[in-house]
Design a protein around this nucleic acid. Sequence first.
DNA 1: ACCCAGGATGTAA
DNA 2: TTACATCATGGG
Length: 315
Amino acid sequence: MHGGTIDLADLPGGLDLYATLESGQSYGWRRADGRAYEGHGPASWKGASPWYERAVDGEVLRVRQRWPDGIGATGRSAGVLEWEATAPIEDRIRRLLRLGDDLPAILDGPATDGAEALLSAATSYAPGMRLVQDPPFETLIAFICSTQMRVPRIHGMVSALAEAYGDPVTADGHTVHAFPDPETLAAATEPALRDLGLGYRAPYVRATAELVADGELTPAAAAGEPYEDARERLTGFVGVGEKVADCVLLFSLGYLEAVPLDTWIRSAIAEHFPDCDRGSYAETSRAIRERFGGDHAGYVQTYVFHYLRTGPEGS
DNA sequence: ACCCAGGATGTAA
DNA sequence: TTACATCATGGG
């Protein structure tokens, strides 16, 4: 096993691993303590988070955050990030967790200029939370599964897909399942996918996997296009509307300006930014994107989503 | 039993 | 273009 330690003091804005991985943007990691997402966060940890594990590029990878001086002394975004892997892939970890992002530079504009209390409350709620950059196909399928679902159940569906169809990768005696290939999911039957609890999303997942497997349309085909063109292209997948397309763009293709308009953000618009409700998705998207800081609006969106869903006013 | 969840699709106007 | 019913399923 390879491994190493990253001092979080070297990252502008630090890192809150728990908020980054369990805030509903990434579904590719599993907790080694066996708990599902939204089980027991940092408040119940002593000096370290549990290991978070995943397979990526045929390798097993795990990370955990540790606070050598205690979690209360320096805050949740401090300490160190420990990693272990079956290959020397620290650069891959840095990409997955977007450790190169300069959080203060990204958030200082829209969030701390005092223009809107919600934004400063949201960004100060989880300092060190970062966006992720997950593999495109698993992100595409995960967010097709996300419609009308709660975060823990989405995580359960993705885990079920991996266990049923993903290649097992073993490290240190235990096994992690990779997310299945497009070809494998395309060959799955709809009843089999329904048995995993996908419900009416089962035919969407199968059909979209087939499009990717046949090369008719791939997430990578959208990368490089202007933001709104890329969003429209992704709606060509089955089960992908504008909101899911925005999630794929933001959480895997690096379009930090994408602002997924889900139920939480729409309620925030109604309550805090009513002038941004322009009726159509495209026009409302433009308005709220501008309000959230333009090029990095998706970063702000993820803080607002996490704050509304799990913060003091959330349910 | 009733309501909701990081919505999308098919159909009708 | 916009409005509407429909779509599974587990948890509160």
